[in-house]
């Protein structure tokens, strides 16, 4: 019973969030940006010289002359069918633009997530229980939190691509061109996750069950990997929302640093050209991804930790 209610509540909240994001996007599209027809006609900024006829035709084509509430209804209806509208500048459907560029971005984000998690795991398991590692870790965390990741990317590029020539300077070809972007995107995640995992491991190692396991003759390594780690991973799952946000936002900047094609580049180009349908499209897709994955991970947390199941939110 509790589980069904939990799912219903989460699904309702998810729909609410997506609707809210869509409404924000609509407000951005229509109320704040001035005359969209002028933006389309002018290419970039608003050009005053466009003739009235052209503006009228654009208004007709995009339906800007209708009352806002009608446009809002149509906008939501299109969204429900998975249609994000037409780009102002690319003369393509926004969905097409996004789907075309999805591959490289997903490869970048997924690889970075795996790398970030793996590095954190190694660091945490290797250093838990060593008091001296404490100061090292808090210093590392401070460094990662305080260093803009695009600068870390630039430094990596300077050293490994331009000085040592180990990796391509930019582009999308092959795994070699992904190594530095992965690392850049993974490092801030590693910093925070390693700290949290290490805390959890430490706490688990102080529990009575740790003594029991060792008394049964298990090695210290086995205790860490088989027994303590499960406890340490729970707080990591609850940080998944933060991790996901960092990834989705990081992708935009990292793609620019490494001059990679992808959703991030599409978004930045669209913002510069004030191609609002593309921007809102990217934001909406990212929000949906964010909400869906977050809900799934929250559900996973409840599967992993049965203690949470009885607790209503």
């Amino acid at each position: 019973m509790v589980t069904t209610r939990w799912w219903l509540r989460r699904a309702g909240l998810g729909v609410l969030v997506i609707w809210g994001a869509a409404t924000l996007s609509f407000i951005g599209l229509h109320l704040l940006s001035g005359d969209p027809a002028r933006i389309i006609a002018g290419g970039g900024g608003a050009v005053s010289g466009s003739s009235e006829q052209i503006l009228a035709r654009i208004n007709e084509q995009y339906g800007f002359h209708e009352p806002l509430i009608v446009q809002y209804g149509r906008f939501l209806g299109q969204l429900a069918r998975g249609d994000l509208g037409m780009s102002y500048q690319l003369n393509q459907r926004v969905t097409t633009v996004i789907v075309d560029q999805l591959g490289p971005t997903v490869a970048l984000a997924l690889g970075a997530a795996v790398l970030g998690f793996g590095l954190a795991l190694v660091l945490a398991v290797g250093t838990a229980g060593r008091p001296r590692a404490e100061s090292l870790f808090s210093t590392l965390e401070l460094l990662f939190v305080s260093t803009p990741s695009f600068w870390v990317g630039i430094l990596l590029l300077t050293v490994f691509s331009f000085r040592l020539g180990w990796f391509p300077v930019f582009g999308n070809e092959g795994v070699a061109s992904l190594v530095l972007p992965w690392l850049t995107l993974a490092l801030p995640i590693t910093g925070t996750l390693a700290l949290v995992m290490r805390d959890g491991l430490q706490r688990a190692l102080e529990q009575p069950f740790a003594t029991t396991v060792l008394a049964r003759g298990a090695t210290a390594t086995r205790l860490r990997l088989r027994h303590a780690l499960r406890h340490a991973l729970l707080p990591v799952l609850t940080l998944s929302g933060w991790t996901l946000g960092t990834l989705l936002g990081g992708v935009v900047v990292i793609e620019t640093v490494f001059a990679r094609a992808g959703i991030g580049q599409v978004a930045v180009t669209a913002v510069n050209g004030r191609d609002l349908p593309v921007v809102t499209g990217v934001v909406l897709v990212a929000t949906v991804v964010f909400v869906v994955i977050n809900t799934a991970l929250d559900a996973l947390t409840r599967v992993v930790d049965p203690r949470l199941r009885g607790v209503p939110e």
């Binding site: 994001a21 996007s25 989705l248 936002g249 913002v271 990212a286 929000t287």
Partner: peptide, 22 residues
């Protein structure tokens, strides 16, 4: 507030800059 926080920070910023101009 939930809605605002569900949109990843950088993307929200992009949306705002797209609306207001650079």
């Amino acid at each position: 507030a939930d809605i605002f926080m569900a949109v990843p920070t950088t993307l929200m910023a992009l949306l705002v800059v797209a609306v207001l101009g650079a």
